[in-house]
């Protein structure tokens, strides 16, 4: 009973709260890092160095008027932000935040569910979010959101292919679809898969940027072209849900990258005896550290690069990334057969 219901429920509550708090502060972190890159201070007013800014932002979004355009399709308009956010949140179910901890004499795994098709689950769930974006843009019954949501759907679908193909090569290396299994496979092989699958990692990161609508692929919300993008008509909490989903997706992409390529909760060079002392650091700290490093990469890229154009983005996706990912799978397979493993 306790193992079946209470602990998973507690885990879910814990993870969801944690994710939402991280999202709030990720927004602040993004603003701060961008500001530092751009020789500014960033938020400074609310709290010392603006550390209470997220609280103020959330409060503001709560009390804002919630506008539904007269000509909008009301049900779909309301449902769209939820359709975007929910898949982003439930994807966390299979992410292993650490190996396991002992609490009150119980050994608790830090993954809510160690599903044996964990990676497949993430792919499946992550691809649902795009429906919300399409529906949100369409139901607003406005031109800019419509254009943006069409862009978004084309972009997300095509980059999903490339990202999923990189998963295949990781699965080939690990021999399992389970997220925990993939981390264990990295433990067994002694190196992070970053060094086994560097090409897959690069493709995954580019695809990840595109899938989360981050710069330089932030076309669906290119403010200089399409005003606010697909959420132009949204305000208040509904807008906040879109916003939340974007940052949650960023965390998902970083956590998956950590799990697949950076050895999840493992310290660097997990098999090296000389570095065994690194195991004294709790596993979830390693995980958080790596995830935030990748998140930092996201923010850094946003502060540096201009934006791609729609057709160029599609060209990069279909003519460069997907063939490269396919070639990577073939090479991985051939090497695996030759090594006889």
């Amino acid at each position: 009973m306790i193992d079946l219901i209470v602990i998973p429920l507690l885990q879910i509550v814990f993870v969801l709260t944690g994710v939402l708090i991280v999202v709030m502060y990720l927004v602040l972190l993004e603003r701060k890092i961008q500001a530092w890159v751009q020789v500014r201070f960033g938020p400074m007013r609310v709290g010392p160095h603006g550390i209470l800014q997220p609280v103020a932002d959330v409060l503001k979004l709560f009390v804002k008027e919630d506008i539904t355009p007269v000509k909008a399709d009301k049900w779909i308009y309301t449902a769209a932000p939820i359709i975007v956010l929910v898949p982003a949140l439930i994807a966390f179910a299979v992410i292993p935040f650490g190996s396991s901890v002992s609490l009150f004499g119980k050994k608790i795994s830090l993954a809510i569910a160690d599903v044996n098709v964990g990676l497949l689950y993430i792919v499946a769930v992550a691809s649902l979010g795009v429906y919300g974006i399409i529906l949100g843009g369409w139901s607003s019954n406005s031109k800019y959101p419509l254009l943006a949501s069409l862009r978004a759907s084309a972009q997300l679908v095509s980059y999903e292919v490339a990202v999923t193909l990189t998963f295949v090569s990781v699965i080939l290396s690990a021999g399992t679809l389970s997220m925990v299994g993939i981390v264990n496979a990295q433990y067994n092989s002694g190196v992070w898969f970053l060094f086994v699958q560097p090409v897959a990692f690069v493709i995954y990161m580019i695809g990840g940027l595109a899938e989360t609508n981050r710069s330089p692929f932030d076309l669906p919300e290119a403010e200089s072209e399409l005003v606010g993008g697909f959420h132009t008509e949204y305000s208040g909490m509904r807008f906040a849900l879109f916003f939340l989903a974007e940052y949650t997706n960023m965390i998902i992409v970083s956590s998956v990258a950590t799990t697949l390529f950076f050895g999840g909760w493992l310290p660097p060079f997990p098999n090296l005896k000389a570095l065994a002392f690194l195991y004294y650091v709790p596993s979830w700290i390693w995980f958080t550290l790596k995830t935030f490093l990748i998140l930092y990469l996201f923010l850094w890229i946003r502060a540096t690069l201009p934006r791609y154009r729609y057709d160029q983005l599609m060209r990069v996706g279909w003519k460069v990334l997907i063939p490269l990912a396919l070639a990577n799978i073939v090479v991985t397979g051939v090497v695996k057969v030759l090594l006889g493993r």
Binding site: Q34, V37, Q38, S215, D218, S224, L305, P306, R307
Partner: peptide, 13 residues
């Protein structure tokens, strides 16, 4: 010009 193309940092510099 750079900001319109998405490079916001250049604008502030």
């Amino acid at each position: 010009h750079a900001m319109d193309i998405g490079a916001v940092t250049v604008f502030l510099y």
